[in-house]
Design a protein around this nucleic acid. Structure first.
Lengths: 244, 244
DNA sequence: ACAAAAGTGTTGCCCATACACCCATGT
DNA sequence: ACATGGGTGTATGGGCAACACTTTTGT
């Protein structure tokens, strides 16, 4: 603090790791980045430098809204990344400076996890950005821009922990009506487990607000599975002092 | 991103919530802030704007080292705070600008929890700062500078969660040799529980590396309690795939 | 002897796990 | 009829919670 010549203010950005679930695989939303001069293309996490009068949560909400058109997305800040080297790669740096019309020295980024229902058809083509879902399992073979591989890995760790203390967050990834198998698959993919069918059902049905419907899935070439839904309001009402 | 006139770079700081335990109470380390012109005095968390080429973790290490002279302190980043209003209070703003000799618009801060053994005698008088331990329970009646009450509360929440998944972090707060009662008190204060003496011992003794010594505490006016110690190396060696 | 805190085991209960067979549907 | 995945119940063991009396030491 005393030697203010050492003090420096970086840019601050928010990066979002957006998870989705297609019924079988866990997905991440990545933005296609093309650098035409170099005939080069890769992927990055959605993110943006924060605006002048914007809170961090607000910035995350804005980024997701610009990208998907959706509001009321489940968001959870998980970690901040400030390694001075993280924006030093020349390709990344040039790309950023061209995009923002600013000289970029250093960026500290705040990481957010977002969970969205992949079922909602979303317009992923805002002006100059294209986004696509990628299997989480394919992440290790993708070289994302900046330190986005590290950020995505940390995000995965984060939701793993969070599912344990707050399993109801799983329903943010499922459509309004879903089958028990989908729910169990989702749980197992995130947690890296292989749950027993019967035991899983017993345990998960303890969650307030999760209820079995008198309805089955249509158009399946085998015995139609029953559908379930999750009522957030019922859940919140009856889940006050839980999460011991 | 498209409207770069909205983009703005704030300062980035790291604030540390330093916890200690004196055998009975959980303590936080607060810095005395005096504004002589106004004959005013209050407290704040230790923190600093990050240096130009410094990672966030490094900044936290530096802050704690400048404050206590210690190295190898347990550190854990827990949340970032970026509300644009958080540095808008005039008293805080003037104080900051005088201290840093810079115009301060906005500060995004990254919060760290630090755990230290209160037993080590520490020099808390670095040049112009004085720091003292305060009971965590007294926090709600103290009006800290900036949004430091909120930061401290979030830090407490954080260690509460963390103790559950990683109870060995409790030993960071205890002296090298400690009694079972101290350990249990510490656990109960953090978790807000009142554990049964026998059950607690059974459970906690499952931790690898925690061992009972053939030694008792001296100079107590009642039956001398036995001492325990925690061996970090033994713990790490035998605790690979745990924390399910 | 008394005050103050330390130390120590057993039991019952509940929850988590393990496990196998029949059912419904489409081809 | 067969292939595919859906759906269901019970028995067992381990871990957690409840619980009370004796020991040590200083005054």
């Amino acid at each position: 603090m005393k030697n203010s010549t050492h003090v420096y203010n970086p840019h601050v950005s928010v990066d979002c790791v957006v998870f989705g679930f297609d019924g079988e695989k866990l997905k991440v939303l990545l933005i296609e980045r093309t650098i035409e001069e170099q005939n080069f293309s890769d992927k990055k996490l959605p993110g943006s430098i924060i605006f002048e009068d914007e809170d961090l949560d607000e910035a995350a909400i804005r980024i997701l809204n610009e990208l998907t058109g959706l509001k009321n997305i489940y968001l959870s800040q998980f970690h901040s990344f400030g390694n001075p080297q993280r924006t030093k790669n020349m390709r990344d740096k040039n790309w950023l400076e061209k995009l923002t019309n600013m000289k970029i020295g250093r960026i500290v980024t705040v990481g957010y996890v977002a969970l969205i229902k992949i079922s909602r058809k979303i317009i992923f083509e805002s002006e100059n950005t294209a986004a696509n879902w990628y299997d989480v399992s394919s992440l290790k073979s993708l070289r994302l821009a900046f330190d986005h591989n590290e950020i995505a890995d940390t995000a995965l760790e984060h939701i793993r922990h969070k599912v344990k203390s707050e399993p109801s967050m799983l329903f943010e990834l499922l459509p309004q009506k879903f089958t028990m198998t989908q729910l169990r698959n989702l749980y197992d993919i995130i947690m890296g487990t292989t749950s027993d069918v019967r035991n899983f059902k017993k345990k998960i049905m303890q969650i307030e607000g999760l209820e079995q419907l008198d309805e089955v899935q249509k158009d399946v070439p085998y015995r139609a599975p029953r559908l379930y839904r999750f009522d957030k309001k019922v859940h919140k009402k009856n889940t006050r002092k839980l999460y011991s």
